[in-house]
Amino acid sequence: MTSDKLHHRSVPQTTTILKTPNNISINNFNLKKTPTHAPANGTTTSEWTGHGWSMAGASFLRWTAADVVGLFKYHTVPCFFAVSLLFFMGVEYTLSMIPSSSPPFDIGFAATVYLHRVLVASPTLNTVLAGLNTVFVGMQTTYILGTWVIEGRPRATVATLFMFTCRGILGYSTQLPLPEEFLGSGADFPVGNVSFFLFYSGHVAGSMIASLDMRRMRRWELAFLFDTLNLLQVVRLLSTRGHYTIDLAVGVGAGILFDSLAGKYMNSAVVAKDVDGSYTNRALLSSPYQS
């Protein structure tokens, strides 16, 4: 083989064509592809590409009784939410609002009236529970930082940074008053009866971030322990009026949201291709992991 032949050697190109059937089944629904048609001006449009709506090809015209039955059979969760939507629309239009001169109504406060009275009558018990809760916050912090510093997995740390930054912005944007029955303690975190952002609960969100990381690493027993302690933390915060119910509920969602956003960030930032074609690890410091 000559050098001339070596330089002119080529690899045959192959092309794979994926054929899409006209009838596509997604989640037990049949979606029929609308054929492309050419208008008089010569341009090509298609309902499938989403350039326009046409009642002639509307989806609901193809619905059958079997589709309706299948909707309730295979998609019970969205159907439940649809019924809930109608129910709460009725509640919203018929419920009398709390007067501005009255304290806010909180269903979590109503459910923990007895526990609140116990803590009022026993300041020592309130301090002990506050101290235990602070220990749990320390456990969260230790685990989240440990996943980065010791294990080299910064995702949970990044999620926590995202979460607390957003919490600070929202907490400052709408400053809610402390409940009138708030029971502070010098052993609580933040320490003492200081002002703090109520919306949303950083205690709960941090616990969720740690628990989600434990599940990714299949540390099931530890995740169960954190979830149990998080639930007890929720009950204590309601009993001491340290958070409104909505703060705690959004805290759960915030933990899930910022863990997901941190995962997307790490996937996009860990490895980047340099100009010369080589690859460089762009994770926080020298992490060998993407999560």
Rank of each mutant, 00 (worst) to 15 (best):
K5N: 06
L6N: 12
R9F: 06
V11C: 06
V11W: 01
T14L: 05
K19L: 03
P21R: 02
I24F: 08
I24Q: 12
S25C: 06
F29R: 06
N30W: 14
T34R: 01
A38I: 15
S46R: 12
W48Y: 08
T49S: 12
S54A: 11
V68H: 01
G70P: 00
L71R: 00
K73S: 12
Y74E: 05
H75P: 06
V77L: 15
P78M: 03
C79H: 04
F80T: 09
L86W: 07
F88R: 07
G90N: 03
P103L: 04
P103V: 07
P104M: 06
D106I: 10
G108Q: 06
F109D: 11
A111C: 09
A111Y: 06
V113M: 03
V113P: 03
Y114W: 10
V118I: 13
V120H: 02
S122Q: 03
S122R: 10
P123W: 08
T124A: 02
V128Q: 06
L132P: 10
T134G: 08
V135R: 01
M139A: 13
Q140F: 02
E151W: 10
R153S: 09
R155L: 06
R155M: 15
A156P: 06
A156F: 14
F164S: 13
C166L: 09
C166Y: 14
R167C: 02
R167S: 10
I169P: 01
Q175W: 10
L176P: 02
E181R: 12
L183H: 12
L183P: 12
S185V: 08
G186I: 08
S195D: 14
F196T: 15
F196V: 10
F199K: 00
G202S: 14
H203D: 14
V204N: 01
M208Y: 03
M208T: 14
L212M: 06
M214L: 15
M217Q: 10
R218G: 00
W220N: 10
E221V: 08
A223P: 04
F226R: 06
T228M: 12
N230P: 00
N230D: 04
V235S: 07
L238S: 07
T245M: 08
T245K: 01
L248E: 08
G253W: 12
G253C: 13
G255Q: 11
I256F: 13
I256D: 04
L257N: 07
L257T: 14
D259M: 13
D259W: 12
L261G: 03
Y265S: 10
M266G: 03
M266F: 05
M266C: 15
M266P: 05
N267F: 10
V275L: 03
Y279E: 09
R282D: 00
R282Y: 09
L285C: 11
S287K: 07
Y289L: 00
